[in-house]
Design a protein around this nucleic acid. Sequence first.
DNA 1: CGATCAATTGATGTATTTCAACGGGGGTGG
DNA 2: CCACCCCCGTTGAAATACATCAATTGATCG
Lengths: 225, 225
Amino acid sequence: MYVTIPSDITRHRPVSPITTTAPKSHETHLKAESYLYFEGDPVDWLYQVKTGVLRLTRLLEDGRRQVIAFGYPGDIVGFPSGGLHHTDCDVLVDATLQPYRRSALESGEGDPALHSALLQAALSEISAMQDHFMMLGRKSAVEKMASFLCVLADRVGEDQGDQRRIDLPMRRGDIADFLGLTTETVSRTLTQLRKSGVIAVQNIHTVAVLRPEALLHLSRGSHDN
Amino acid sequence: MYVTIPSDITRHRPVSPITTTAPKSHETHLKAESYLYFEGDPVDWLYQVKTGVLRLTRLLEDGRRQVIAFGYPGDIVGFPSGGLHHTDCDVLVDATLQPYRRSALESGEGDPALHSALLQAALSEISAMQDHFMMLGRKSAVEKMASFLCVLADRVGEDQGDQRRIDLPMRRGDIADFLGLTTETVSRTLTQLRKSGVIAVQNIHTVAVLRPEALLHLSRGSHDN
DNA sequence: CGATCAATTGATGTATTTCAACGGGGGTGG
DNA sequence: CCACCCCCGTTGAAATACATCAATTGATCG
């Protein structure tokens, strides 16, 4: 999951379960805290997230970290480059994964539909990452947080009465490393959004969106509230 | 071209001319200032840059801009998502392009080798963009500029005596929008690098790397110098 | 040669980081 | 079962990197 530009045009990229002849039997279950793969590992499988949440990270020698993406249901993780993984990937929330052979993407012999679906997923990935560039490079802290919450609300928010509830299984530091901020700034920005009545923080891992339009405006940088 | 992490392992991703049966006759020539495609255009062709430099940009409603990438020889541009282009692309330096049908990537009928090469290019793209995330989200201005110059020196630098000459055909504002900075900061950072003897600015569009190791250290954030 | 636009440099402002202290929630061990 | 502890999140105060605003220089072109 990347922070794409909220726009009614680019709406909802196909979070489709890849429909294919693949047998459901091979589904993999992983517990929180466990690692799916490490940077440098050879890629044998790609995975589509069915349930749960993954975290893809990249580390700098001096300890600085970038959370590349969160893996939410529908996302496909593990695209190889030079046959290798280029991030670490671990599990934030117990997850169910549908594995696909790397060869299904790269050679595609066997199941053309699957091959095509994986290819399209890779291409969507590129596009989504481009949006994410814009966010990392050009947006302020509030805009980043608002954008992040918008995307989450849209993708995995759950209706609760008339407001939308968002679960944040990751830690503040993960959000920070995802958005290019510090934990302190993430925290401050959340309280700021809370105090301005845009969201409510029900507990550390749950926020509710009280004024969706306001949140969207903030994500776009409309400072005219 | 993205700002990848300079590492002796990840060295030089295959900037290979796609070797295939494709006839050279179809090469396209484009003059500087001209546009190759716009955001929203349907994708019919992908292009491998043979000579020249392209600029891929994405615009925000309020005018903020992100330069997604520069297209240097070896790079492939125009990966579709949902069949559409998601950036604008125009020409910085007169360019020669080798076009490939979108179908060569997506259906691959006809030329399996070409299909595979384009797919691998897309996958490298994802990996390179992940490195770029790290740069945008976690690096300081000096680190960004140093990284940028390192990558350029490595990819398109030309030996000049014992130092390496880099051509910067783009404007300062382009570099800024690429690295998530302002033109002023780009300018100041360049003079800072110049005054510290790491580079020499021969003219607005040409810098020479005087101390490559120092530049590399700076790009990594080694502040002990 | 003057006009124009980009790049540089300076002065000032500010958003975010950094450093530091505090508090709360959850788990563990006594 | 309670107490303690540890980690994480929050909040505050101070520092700073970068942006913003503004003026000057420098290049390019008719």
